[in-house]
Simulated assay, not measured.
Amino acid sequence: MSRTVRQIGIAADDSLALPNRGSTEPIRRGLARPRDPLRHWRIAGVALPFAFLACVEVLVRLSVLPEHLVPAPSTIAQTLWELGGARLGRHVGASCVRVLTGFGLGAMLALLLGAAMGLSRRLDALLDPAFQALRAIPSLAWVPILLLWMGIDEAPKITLIAIGAFFPVQLSVVAGIRDVDRKLIELGEVHRLDQRALFIRILLPASLPQIFTGLRTGLSLAWMFMVAAELIAATRGLGYLLSDGRETGRPDLVFGAILLLALLGKLSDSVLKAIEAHTLSWRDTATDQRSSRSVR
Rank of each mutant, 00 (worst) to 15 (best):
Ala274Gln: 12
Leu111Trp: 04
Pro34Asn: 07
Thr24Ile: 12
Leu140Arg: 01
Arg6Trp: 12
Arg29Gly: 11
Leu134Trp: 00
Gly188Val: 10
Gly151Arg: 06
Phe50Ser: 12
Pro37Val: 05
Arg98Gly: 12
Phe52Leu: 15
Ile258Gly: 07
Phe131Trp: 00
Ser268His: 01
Pro34Val: 09
Leu109Ser: 13
Asp194Ala: 11
Ile152Met: 07
Leu193Arg: 10
Leu123His: 02
Leu260His: 06
Ala32Lys: 12
Leu231Trp: 15
Leu259Pro: 07
Ser95Ala: 09
Thr24Gln: 14
Met108Leu: 15
Gly84Pro: 05
Met150Ile: 06
Pro71Phe: 03
His191Ser: 11
Leu184Tyr: 15
Arg290Phe: 08
Val70Met: 08
Arg201Ala: 12
Pro156Tyr: 00
Gly249Cys: 09
Leu263Gly: 14
Ser291Thr: 12
Ile145Pro: 02
Glu230Trp: 07
Arg236Phe: 03
Val169Asn: 00
Ser139Ile: 03
Pro71Ser: 04
Leu53Lys: 10
Asp153Trp: 03
Ile43Tyr: 11
Ser172Arg: 02
Leu123Gln: 01
Arg98His: 12
Ser120Gly: 00
Ser270Gly: 10
Ile202Glu: 09
Ala141Ile: 03
Leu100Ser: 13
Thr235Lys: 14
Glu57Trp: 13
Thr101Pro: 04
Thr4Phe: 10
Ile185Phe: 09
Arg29Ala: 15
Cys55His: 06
Trp223Ser: 11
